[in-house]
Amino acid sequence: MIETRGLTRKFGTITAVDDLNLKIRDGEVFGFIGPNGAGKTTTVRMLCCLIAPTSGSAHIHGLDISKPEEALMIRGKIGLLPEMPGLYESLSAYRNLDFYAQLYDVPKGVREERIQKLLQTLGMWERRDDPVGKFSKGMKQKIAMARALVHEPDYLFLDEPTSGLDPEASLTVRNYLLDLKKEGRTIFINTHNLDDAARLCDRVGVMSTRLLAVGTPDELSGMFWGNTTVVRLRHIAPGMIDAVSSLPGVTGVKQEGSAMLVDVGYPEDVNPLITKTLVNMGGEVLSMGELKRGLEDVYIKLLGERR
């Protein structure tokens, strides 16, 4: 489990992370979304025991990040994929991974087998002896991903894993992360890519120095909006909006072109009434459905309120 209590980090007068309280269960994939400078990378660096918190505490696997001996043990249990791959460009892909495997005390026989498996899974085995400097950004990202996993860590911290990748490389990385999710690893992802967060993460935290909200994507959506029914008509006649607004169970109506967005308490009870009312007034209903609000809406709403 990853647990933070009042975790705060200041750089001089600037507060990068303010009073972060978070619990991430073992096996959970947790996504951190937020704008640049929101404190996501600083949080990861604190959790990876690279920088110390100014105040507050954090525990990973019951170990305190602020105690040097325990920090050393934590570093053995985590894998980090930083925002920049940071590979040794003159060394081969294999040598890069072998070096890290040695630092993580992976035994020699296991090391070879594991590196081969990782490179094969990521489609890089044929290029194992090539210097990393000759690789594309996507290929480097795959090697960096393999590096973070070469010691099979219990906790994986990924800082912008698909940033700057082309759609194909991005898809490979995303699919690989889904495989890792199935393995039951605890994964902490910093991302700008809300689509990635929605697809990969069990829970998402919206960060802007402070943690603004945390929950599953559906929970986050439910925090701000109720159920909205979208009714598409051929034509919205005068009086239709008022008629629907006056129906029991309807809390608000908005017109968007020839569509009507109706906020309702219980769609199952209210949707038939809406249809009946509109048809009685001569309306031609083309479709009716539920309005899905994604993470993007949550993100923009939260950060808009913050500003």
Binding site: G76, I78, L80, P82, G86, E89, Y100, L103, A144
Partner: peptide, 14 residues
Amino acid sequence: LNRSLEPLLATPTT
């Protein structure tokens, strides 16, 4: 410059 210090510092090396 290569940004390779961060992953190196994240290993259990003192």
